[in-house]
Design a protein around this nucleic acid. Structure first.
Length: 285
DNA sequence: CACCATGTTCCTTG
DNA sequence: CCAAGGAACATGGT
C-alpha cells in the first residue's frame, strides 16, 4: 500500500488511535523488518514508551514517542511493497505475516508485511536525503525544474527518484504524466517550462484526489477483510470499494484498454525494470 | 515453470 | 563525489 496518498491516509487514521497509548510489550516475529537498528535496542526503547504524534515524510511514517524514562524519540516506519499497520483486539488472531506486534493493553498494534520489504527503525537517516514534499506550497516549477534540467533520464524514471520529489511511486508517476499529457519516455532535461509547470500541477492534483478519496473510506482490514478499499490490489476487483479505487486510475494497469480521452489503447512499456502505462496518442513529446 | 507486483538499498561501472 | 543501471530482498497471484 505504498505511495504518498496511502501513507498519508494511514497516518491520519493511526494518529488519534495511537495517541497516549503505552507499549506494554514488543513482539518481533520477523527480525528482518527491524533494520539497521538492532532488534534488542528497538525493543528496549519501545517498551513502556507512549505514543504522541504520528506524521508522514514521503512514504515514511514518523512515530513520535516518549520513552519510559521520559525522553522523546522517533521511530520511522515504512510499508515497503506490501506492508500494513492496524490495531486489532488482543484476542484476535495474528495474521500469518504479522512482523511486529506492539501490545497496547486492550489492543495490539500490528505491522503486517507479506514480503517483508517494509521496516521499523530508530535511524532517521533514510529521511535525510529526501527531496521536497510535492504537496508543500513551496513545491512548484522553481523547486522542481532545476532537478530535471541536467538529467538525460526519462521523466517517468526521474519521478521515482526520491531525491527529486519525495513520495511518488510507480502508480502515480504514470497517472501524473497522463494528466500532464507528457510522454513517459521524454528526457527530463527536454521538458519545456510549461510542461514542468503542468507536471507539477498534475502531481499535486493526482495525489490530493487520492488522499481525498482515501479519507472517505473506512479503514478496517484486520478483522477478516482482505482489502480496505484504499489500496491497490492488482487486478483483483471483487470488493466494491477496491473497484472504485481502480476506477480512479486512468492508465495504470490498463494495458490494451481504451484511453478515457481519445479511445486509443493504453500501452505498457518497461522503464528501469518497472512497468509504465501511457496513452501513445495523448502523451507525445 | 514462467512472469508479474504499490519500494528501497546496495553494488558496480562510468 | 555523482549519475545510472541492475540485482537483491521475499512472498504470493495468475
Amino acid at each position: 500500500m505504498p505511495e504518498l496518498p496511502e501513507v498519508e491516509v494511514l497516518v491520519r487514521h493511526l494518529d488519534p488511535l495511537l495517541k497516549n497509548r503505552t507499549v506494554q510489550k514488543v513482539t518481533v516475529r520477523r527480525e528482518r523488518v527491524i533494520r539497521p537498528t538492532p532488534v534488542a535496542r528497538l525493543k528496549r526503547k519501545l517498551k513502556g514508551a507512549t505514543f504522541n504524534r504520528v506524521s508522514r515524510r514521503a512514504k515514511f511514517l514518523l512515530f513520535n514517542l516518549t520513552s519510559l524514562s521520559g525522553g522523546p524519540f522517533s521511530m520511522l516506519g515504512h510499508l515497503g511493497m506490501s506492508g500494513r499497520m492496524y490495531l486489532q483486539p488482543k484476542s484476535a488472531p495474528l495474521a500469518k505475516h504479522a512482523a511486529v506486534v506492539l501490545d497496547l493493553g486492550s489492543d495490539n498494534f500490528v505491522f503486517e508485511d507479506t514480503r517483508y520489504f517494509g521496516r521499523f527503525t530508530l535511524s532517521l537517516s533514510p529521511v535525510e536525503g529526501l527531496g521536497p514534499e510535492p504537496l508543500d506550497p513551496s513545491f512548484c516549477a522553481e523547486q522542481f525544474a532545476p532537478g530535471l534540467a541536467r538529467s538525460a533520464q526519462a521523466i517517468k524514471v526521474k519521478l521515482l527518484d526520491q531525491k527529486l520529489v519525495a513520495g511518488i511511486g510507480n502508480i502515480y508517476a504514470s497517472e501524473a504524466l497522463f494528466r500532464a499529457r507528457i510522454s513517459p519516455k521524454k528526457s527530463a532535461r527536454r521538458l519545456k517550462g510549461e510542461q514542468v509547470t503542468a507536471l507539477c500541477g498534475a502531481i499535486q492534483q493526482v495525489l490530493e484526489e487520492a488522499i481525498a478519496f482515501g479519507s472517505t473510506v473506512p479503514l478496517n482490514f484486520p478483522s477478516g477483510e482482505r482489502t480496505d478499499g484504499l489500496f491497490y490490489y492488482g487486478t483483483q476487483s471483487s470488493a466494491q470499494e477496491s473497484r472504485s479505487y481502480e476506477e480512479r486510475l486512468l492508465v495504470y494497469d490498463r494495458e490494451g484498454q481504451r484511453c478515457a480521452n481519445c479511445s486509443t489503447p493504453i500501452r505498457r512499456i518497461i522503464q528501469a525494470a518497472r512497468s509504465t502505462f501511457f496513452c501513445p496518442n495523448c502523451q507525445r513529446g
